[in-house]
């Protein structure tokens, strides 16, 4: 029971939020929607969770049509919106009880599903949700989205604003939920999280740029990338951008990722050019493409 999306489009006034989007998520797959703010991720989530009508196209979730069988979908999915949407003035335990009751179940009935997440926030079960830290809020929201044992879980930017330790724990939790046969559609603006999904769709400005496994997306990058370093980063970027044979120049941490237009590119030519520009402590070496490189090449 996965998700199918066929030719979905949605326009707000003059903004094309989604343009002819199609993809399918297999049962028990972790599928990532990877794209920046404004890409259309939240609009798509709202259509799939039956909170918004598409202008065109069809979609099913857990086998149900998003328009004609919306009530069945609402019983079968868990949705964790990007913005913290629990009751700030209810305690941790009250929030969880509330959502269990709404879905006609109890905390006890599905406790095994949330147990390893809930034990981490249980020491604070009498604290009001509004007083929790970012990482704790995120764990409580996930518990509330899981309490009725959904078949499909929608997570809209669950890790935005969360520190690396909590992010890592969160992804470990998702892997365990996957083992329990839950289908997961997760969005993130952070490209490093893409590698943790089974398959990903790169999305920008309402269009899907590419869909594949993270490994395949990286493998299909069309050029050899070079890490270029020098003592003065700003001067290095300017010199590379001014180089007549450059294809792309992107700062990438302590290096710049450089690709050349020529098929017979020799890094020594580039070294000589950079030396002529008075750059010091030069380093040039071939490096592997990342998902971010692919995203930028496709979005160019």
């Amino acid at each position: 029971m996965g998700i199918t999306v066929r030719n979905i489009s949605k326009t707000y006034k003059n903004v094309k939020a989604l343009q002819d989007i199609s993809f399918a998520v297999k049962p028990a797959e972790i599928f990532g929607l990877i794209g920046p703010d404004g890409a259309g991720k939240t609009t798509l989530f709202r259509i799939l969770t039956t909170l918004l009508f598409a202008d065109e196209g069809k979609a099913t979730v857990a086998g149900y049509d998003v328009v004609t069988a919306y009530k069945d979908i609402r019983k079968s999915v868990g949705y964790m919106p990007g913005k913290f949407s629990l009751y700030h003035d209810l305690t941790v335990e009250e929030n969880l009880n509330f959502f269990a009751t709404i879905f006609g179940t109890t905390i006890e009935e599905n406790y095994e599903l949330i147990e390893d997440i809930y034990v981490q926030i249980a020491p604070f079960k009498n604290r009001r949700a509004g007083k929790l830290s970012g990482g704790m809020k995120q764990k409580l929201a996930l518990c509330c989205a899981l309490i009725h044992k959904p078949k499909v879980l929608f997570l809209d930017e669950p890790t935005t604003g969360v520190d690396p330790v909590s992010r890592k724990e969160f992804w470990e939790m998702l892997k365990r939920l996957q083992e329990k046969e839950i289908t997961i559609l997760v969005s993130t603006p952070y490209m490093d999280e893409a590698a943790l999904c089974d398959r990903i769709a790169l999305i920008q400005a309402g269009k899907i740029l590419q869909i594949d496994t993270p490994e395949a997306i990286v493998r299909h990058y069309p050029k050899q990338i070079y890490n270029v370093g020098a003592s003065n980063m700003y001067a290095l970027i300017n010199s590379l951008k001014a180089y007549e044979h450059k294809h792309s120049v992107y700062p990438f941490g302590e290096f710049v990722h450089y690709t050349d237009r020529r098929s017979n590119f020799n890094p020594e030519d580039l070294r000589r050019y950079l030396e002529s520009q008075d750059l010091r402590q030069l380093a040039i070496e071939a490096t592997a493409a990342t998902i971010e490189d692919t995203f930028m090449e496709l979005a160019k």
Partner: peptide, 23 residues
Amino acid sequence: EPTGGVDPIARRQFWEMIYKAAN
């Protein structure tokens, strides 16, 4: 926490501005 959520190209343009200011 200046650059959350923006696309990778805009993020790099932002860092280029930071390098320029530092320079």
